[in-house]
Amino acid sequence: MSSSNSVPSPFVLKPKYADFKKVQASREPFDASLPVTTTQSPNPQWQYGSVPSSRSHISNSHIEIDPFAQDRRMISNYKLLISGIPRPISFVSTIEKTGEKNLAPFSYFQVIDHDPPTFVIGFSARASRPKDTRRNLEETGECVINVVSEQMIEAVNATSLDVPHGTSEWELSGLTPEPSSTVKPERVKEAVFSIEGRLLEMKELDYHGAREAGKPTGALAIIEGMRFWVREDAINESREDIDLAALRPLVQLGGIQYGRVRETFELPRPSLGTELADESNGLAKVLGE
């Protein structure tokens, strides 16, 4: 509903391509029919105490970076972090006290517990007024978190447009609002998985005297999930497993890049007793048994 969802001016990034439409047209079309496949793990023959395959690059040294160095720009930390940490994307629906609706994507997002279901959303510091989503959460304490899938990414991206106050992100995106059960904000019907949430705490990230120095501060919203909504063809009979092939989640990477989840592998979590019983894995030798 306003321009506050756009990237704040200190974070405005120059386009990677002068003519992205031309670059886009030169690439292979997106194939939504490609299946999700499962392969072996990277090194099925790995043994306890053995050299990981990544050690082949151990001769390369590392560079130490101080994020608070006097000559280091804030935008440099931003670029480094988003290029080094793949992030799930939450598409958050909120509502103002006046009834105005808001939709905004956030990649500073994660689930941190299941009992109770708890999530965090991070809000970067802004030179202008706080994001609508942050203000709405602080004022009403309610939201819906919609997980972003492949088929809706263009619509989600459209809600980041720097539009005049009063413009509806719902109309911009063409997405369909659906009533929620426990909160006023509506969920996105096109989302395979949505979570109704209530704000537990909004923690201001006032580090290194930012507020005292007159600088904007970020914030961390801690949200409790009150209801889950899963598309009926994507959930199993026991209502506890979402089909990856139906969810088709995306991750946000560096710059303007996104990643698909198209190939997976399985690796069971080890149990000490079971692993010790397997004489071929090298664990007994490492433990001196």
Rank of each mutant, 00 (worst) to 15 (best):
L244K: 00
P52C: 10
L205P: 03
E150C: 03
P29C: 13
R129G: 07
S181R: 09
R231I: 05
S107T: 05
P249G: 09
T39N: 09
M1L: 03
G218K: 06
F123M: 09
K79A: 10
E289P: 00
L205V: 02
R231N: 11
L161S: 13
D31I: 03
N157W: 02
P10I: 07
I63P: 02
I222G: 07
I195H: 07
P179G: 08
P164T: 04
E201D: 09
L34P: 01
F91N: 07
Q252L: 11
G99R: 08
D66G: 06
F30S: 09
P116F: 08
A246P: 01
V23A: 14
R72Y: 07
E196M: 04
S93F: 02
Q45P: 00
L250H: 01
K101S: 11
E171P: 00
P216T: 05
P268H: 13
A158R: 13
A246R: 11
N157P: 10
V7F: 08
T39L: 06
V12T: 08
N236W: 00
Y207I: 15
G218C: 04
G166K: 03
I95C: 05
K215V: 02
D278M: 05
R27D: 05
D132A: 13
E196P: 12
N136T: 09
P268T: 10
N146S: 13
R55N: 10
A32Q: 10
F119Q: 11
T94S: 03
S3H: 13
N77E: 08
P67V: 04
D115M: 07
P44S: 12
S33D: 10
E171K: 15
G225E: 12
L267E: 07
G214I: 02
L81V: 14
L13T: 09
P177S: 11
L276M: 14
V183T: 02
E190Q: 12
N5V: 04
K184L: 10
A219W: 01
L253S: 10
V156S: 08
V111A: 14
F228G: 02
R231F: 00
S93I: 06
H114N: 14
T133P: 06
S61N: 12
K203G: 00
F123K: 11
P185V: 01
M152E: 01
L220P: 05
L13Q: 12
R73T: 11
M226G: 04
I95R: 15
F91K: 05
D31Y: 01
E28M: 04
T133L: 08
D19G: 01
R129H: 08
P10N: 06
P15L: 00
L161T: 13
N102I: 06
H165E: 13
I112D: 01
L81N: 15
D113E: 07
G141H: 08
F11G: 08
P270H: 13
V7H: 07
R262N: 15
N102M: 06
I112P: 05
V120Q: 12
M74D: 06
A210M: 09
S124L: 15
Y78R: 12
K97E: 14
A245E: 15
I89R: 05
D132T: 09
L175N: 02
A125R: 13
G166T: 01
S180Y: 04
I223F: 00
